[in-house]
Design a protein around this nucleic acid. Structure first.
Lengths: 254, 254
DNA sequence: CGGCGGCTTGACCTCTCTCAAGAATAGTGG
DNA sequence: CCACTATTCTTGAGAGAGGTCAAGCCGCCG
């Protein structure tokens, strides 16, 4: 564990280098920035990463295991996704469950209210996460204004991402929501091969359904719809050939 | 204008004092905080407010007028609601319009992406706003880590607020969404009389419909539903008698 | 008092949910 | 390598919530 603690940011750095230009789908600007700033993730320097690594834990979570944390549980950590995908979910009193976000590598999660987690978090595929004690992180950020500013930009970015999800849920039918989801997946090199245009859907129908606010059956039907329109082609249930730009055009989202 | 610039934060302070305990509906905690921290708004000290007032403009916007800004427009300011209600909206290519947030006094708005506003903003009732040049604000925040930290907390709070809206849209039927909206309105003393339990709905059916992701007709029908259940009583189209706690219970949201 | 805009109501129709069964896939042990 | 089983995906049919269109109503303002 101690070893991991010191190398994880380096690992992340390497991963970022491999990703190269393909991070662009998640690359969106928050409040206006200097022109040369990149705003999708935190975009920390190596030194900053090293400083942060001094007080984080590395944890692994399996997809089949128990939730990372549960809504209402005492919250004293914030999590960062290094590898894998985590889904944030909220259960209301009637028992209905709603996904509030899908966290990809580079995202933070662990919002709390009154010292308790506001949502539950579950790994939808196997993950490695970094865990920060919230108190230490806060003190550190106050002592490093420029790093804190990057966190503020990241938070603003997340507001916009959540608003985007709201727009998707409120203004698009299921087929279009699915189209957006698939295009988003194509922004992640781990699952999309730009050469062959083949996407490996990383999560189950049920998890997709949660994410886009529908049922697993309707997800399947929406896949049929997109296939009939010639926007995708199903090779196996999880391997799709994707026409990215047509899909994006169809979704009628920017 | 210069006079206003120097007194606005004082005015706000007075308003906060008048509000007293009734801010509780919007009072929610972001990431875990020191126990004595209040986390609904920015919660700045008088000195901090004075410092900020040095580089803000005061502007008035009428409900019938043009938008405060339009999606895609060049963004170099951030706005703060002093009085009134502003609705953030996003229009997708198909022309469908979706509300992304309702901004009440104390809220900031003006998210941008690639230097352009991500959403449009319209005053749904007459407003007074404070407008900050984004560059100056950023520089100021970096030079004042503790104030920046309050902005970070506010941003995190807004993420949760947006997630909450997402939950409402994804997991609740229209009657319940309306119930949540009405209860939220009751948290604002300007429109709700705690003694008589009378709420004056501040915005039109159409704007409500946008906000909760439905049509104006369905809003009316949902009002009927709630009235039949005895949760509200309609005196005029805009004056309702509200049973707050029953409504909240009905909504099945926390 | 007359007109305009927002609210209300009705009728119809579409999309999506639910329930239920059948197919494909992956995992397991022989 | 082949059954057998658990899981996930797919398809079908029926029901219901809510969208849309169209008309009527009410309060507000000139």
């Amino acid at each position: 564990m101690p070893v991991s603690m010191h190398i994880w940011f380096d690992m992340k750095l390497t991963a970022a280098q491999l990703d190269g230009s393909n991070m662009s789908v998640r690359a969106q600007h928050p409040w206006p920035l200097e022109d040369d700033e990149e705003a999708s993730g935190l975009d920390l320097t190596l030194d900053e990463k090293t400083e942060l690594s001094h007080f984080c834990d590395v944890i692994s979570v399996g997809a089949k295991g128990p939730p990372i944390f549960t809504q209402g549980q005492h919250a004293d950590h914030v999590f960062y996704v290094n590898e894998g995908i985590v889904q944030g979910r909220h259960t209301i009193r009637s028992g209905v469950r709603q996904s509030v976000a899908l966290y990809w590598p580079g995202d933070f999660f662990g919002l709390a209210r009154d010292g308790m987690f506001f949502n539950s978090a579950e790994a939808v595929i196997d993950c490695t996460l970094y865990r920060y004690p919230i108190r230490k992180l806060e003190k550190f950020l106050i002592s490093r204004p420029r790093i804190q500013h990057k966190f503020l930009m990241k938070a603003v970015h997340d507001i916009r991402k959540t608003q985007r999800q709201l727009i998707i849920m409120g203004a698009l039918d299921v087929a279009r929501r699915l189209a957006v989801f698939l295009v988003d997946c194509c922004g992640h090199r781990e699952y999309f091969d730009t050469g062959t245009q083949h996407l490996t859907i990383p999560i189950s129908r049920h998890d997709i359904a949660d994410h886009i606010g529908t049922s697993a059956e309707t997800v399947t039907r929406a896949i049929n719809t997109l296939e009939k329109k010639g926007l995708i082609r199903r090779e196996t249930p999880w391997k799709l050939e994707i026409k990215t730009s047509e899909l994006l055009a169809f979704s009628s989202l920017d």
